[in-house]
Design a protein around this nucleic acid. Structure first.
Lengths: 148, 148
DNA sequence: ACTAAATACATTGATATCAATAGAAATGAG
DNA sequence: CTCATTTCTATTGATATCAATGTATTTAGT
């Protein structure tokens, strides 16, 4: 009959080379592995580090704003909190001013874990900074922010 | 005793603002949602689109190089192939020249699904291109490639 | 040819991700 | 105040992700 449903190989190469989504997912996986490896001695993954760092505030935040800050689905946040609660690093309490909501806070143990992880983050980040051309990291951050 | 394990709030803000890993994960989640939504009528997620597009070659590739191309763990690729096999879009066959390996190929149905998804990818990507300053997408791709 | 090492995948278990849905509480219209 | 709507979160089900481990096959050293 017809082979009109075949996509030319040249198109495949173009999509591979230009797809921003693919490039971001690739970089996300690679960076996640890098930070996961570095943070492993502290007992944290990159996502847990970012989440717990976002909870290190004067006032315990509700879940919605935290999910928005991390650009993550609210149900993902609910799930991500579970292991941190089990380990006793994060407390989830009912908001007395709005009983639908929860307030998230770090326990002293959680703060200690985060403090142990901080220097690892610093050295890992410095390593990446050093490997990229001067100024490109700041530029990259800005471009990424425009996407999320 | 001591409160030396407390990380100052200012440090938290600095980490949030500068952490490249967090920025990439955020952008990855946001872009994944964008493409997932757009590709849903075609029955594909962004990851399935990228994977299937990478299989659209003259010769069926083995798993290792595909996983490397997508910067994804080999076990993740094994898992990601399962639903595509079930739907009859991808074939996994033993490599006759190396019986440890597998060769991945698209079925005619898989090619048809991919062809249906391609214009969606094009319009979605054009939309993103239009929303960002001229040239920044190409620059962003280059910077991301340096990370993976 | 024989055997040790390396290679290519698969499986298991844990966490991450989101859509769809449901529940409970607050808010707003009247 | 009442009720419909909205808001905030949890649960379920499916896929995505990777570490640790296991199995089969190939390769290399002898």
């Amino acid at each position: 009959m017809s082979n009109s449903i075949e996509i030319p190989f040249s198109t495949t190469l173009m999509v591979r080379d230009t797809c921003l989504c693919l490039h971001v997912q690739r970089a996300a996986r690679a960076l996640a592995r890098l930070f996961d490896d570095a943070l492993r001695p502290a007992g944290l993954t990159n996502g847990q580090f970012s989440l717990m760092m976002s909870l290190n505030r004067p006032e315990p935040p509700p879940m919605g704003p935290v999910a928005a800050l991390l650009a993550m689905d609210q149900t993902t946040l609910t799930a991500a909190l579970k292991p941190l609660q089990r380990k006793g690093w994060v407390t989830v309490m009912e908001n007395p001013r709005d009983r639908r909501g929860r307030l998230l806070s770090l326990t002293p143990e959680g703060k200690a874990v985060l403090a142990k992880a901080l220097p690892i983050w610093e050295s890992t980040h410095a390593m990446i900074d050093g490997k990229l051309p001067d100024g490109s990291v700041a530029r990259l951050r800005q471009d990424l922010q425009a996407l999320s």
